[in-house]
Design a protein around this nucleic acid. Sequence first.
DNA 1: GACAATGTTACAGT
DNA 2: CACTGTAACATTGT
Length: 309
Amino acid sequence: MPELPEVQTTVNGLNRAIVGLRITDAWSDYNSIHHKGSDNIKDPRYFAQFRRTIIGSKIVSAERRAKNVLINLNHSKTILIHMKMTGHLLYGEYTGPTCGTGRTCVWQPIAPEPLKDPFNRHIHLVITFTNSKRLVLSDARKFAKVTLLPTKGAGQSDHLNHIGPEPLDKTFTPEIFAARLHSRPNGKIKQVLMDQKVVAGIGNIYSDEALWRAGIHPLEIVRNIPDDKMRAIFKAVKETLSKGIDLGGDSMSDYRNIGGEPGKFQLHHRAYRKTGTRCTKKDCGGTIRRIVVGARSAHFCDKHQKLRG
DNA sequence: GACAATGTTACAGT
DNA sequence: CACTGTAACATTGT
């Protein structure tokens, strides 16, 4: 599940791999009746227009906004990609059948190992460069969103204009964080943390891990959280996300970096999917429990994350 | 074969 | 109107 650290890992990889390359073609087999008439390549008519527009342009840079990848092109257009739950971008050689013939494209990584990984085989978008290498989107559940925006004012588009502040920004302070959370005083802390309008980039994994670190129960109501605990959550969010980036993202499920290789954050989970195991906080001795919050799983320690109310 | 997994949004309900 | 909860999206892995 790409959250902020996974998207950042992808963007970092793109800035190393594809800047300066020119696009020669694009192919996709997305086709959904639910996106007819939308500015999403899942509408084949939109894809045809998307393809015509990006052919011939050069990659200037890649950046991240919340969980969105933004690829800036040299003709003042930007490709926006939201990978949703199971999408990830891969860059590499291509040796399969010609795209556009109706057959599924086969992507081959530079290293042979990732090709065996089933999560790298669900390819629904291929962008080809003049060096004949390709950027492809593997997206097992086909939830991803891909669209084209004017670079100037991309942030003001409907895709991005509602998103809250970036938690790793230097300008992001504990005061701003608390004020954002208090915009939903009656909300459960886990759900509010994951609300992209409140703070950008946090999803199920990092909310569980940050709350474990801060010692806060996921069902705690925002209104009841004292200032010092708010600061603790602020610090935990920053530390958890930074650690995720340092470890190259979380590959417990399908996420892979652009070389097709897994990240390492899943080896450091303290709560997420640790149900029934002993809490690893020093001298804690609690047990990790799983509950359902807003139709999503939440994991927490029953000893050092007590509900205070 | 049932069920869990999840980011986001549309929509129904309070 | 504001807010909350749930279904839908599509598919894989267990």
